[in-house]
Amino acid sequence: MSRMLEMKNVSTYYGNIQALYDVSLHIDHGEIITLIGANGAGKSTTLMTICGLLKPRAGDVLYEELSIVGESTNKIVSSGICQVPEGRLIFPELTVRENLDMGAFLRSDKDGIARDMEYSYELFPILAERRNQPGGNLSGGEQQMLAIARALMARPRLLLLDEPSMGLAPLVVKQIFDIVKKINKESGTTIFLVEQNANLALKIGHRGYVMENGKIVLTDSCETLLANEDVKRAYLGL
């Protein structure tokens, strides 16, 4: 497996407040990588740094071996990196269908887009029922489904998921994790999964990183992390 994304000693700040300290991690093609950590650890900051919405003050981010630091977000997205951000960020006044359309913003293959839209409706039938309603009218869980479906419309090569299970019923969480596994297996989409639900995330991931106070403190295969006493105590509530 070859290197897809690599963060090298990245430090990111909000104004004068440092949020990431010397973060290094890597993601290989086809992997599911999990990032777990407590509230405020810096997980979302890590994803926003990858997408170019935050610029690291030190360090480098390499995608397919080229630095993407300083690139505009739309350029980074067009190279195949796609994020489902925390809090879903549905376009509230666009209809469900228009939200999905926006996911395919950088694509121009009309037939492919239409097929993927049908596929989204198959995955989440509730979206088909509500396709002409404004996204803001959906429930929280429905919005999360829409956010994931919208990201898939981009046919990402690397999919960044920021707490996709948040606020969802267990059955829906299972469905979403099944879909994540499926697109990883069938389309070979590489996944970078940020989760509070460490138990689930470590079960579907190949390798994992643990973040505390803006630093990576532990990394290993997910199996090993699941068995790690510190991880068990801090993140699995055992």
């Binding site: 997408c51 919405l53 505009s72 977000t73 739309n74 997205v77 067009s78 796609c82 994020q83 951000p85 960020l89 549905i90 376009f91 509230p92 006044e93 666009l94 228009e98 359309d101 926006m102 996911g103 913003f105 950088l106 919208r150 981009a154």
Partner: peptide, 20 residues
Amino acid sequence: GKAMRATAQNRTMAQLVGVS
């Protein structure tokens, strides 16, 4: 037109779907 509406509603998300 859609990109304009999307940007007005949520600029961060518009950027994340590739809108300049």
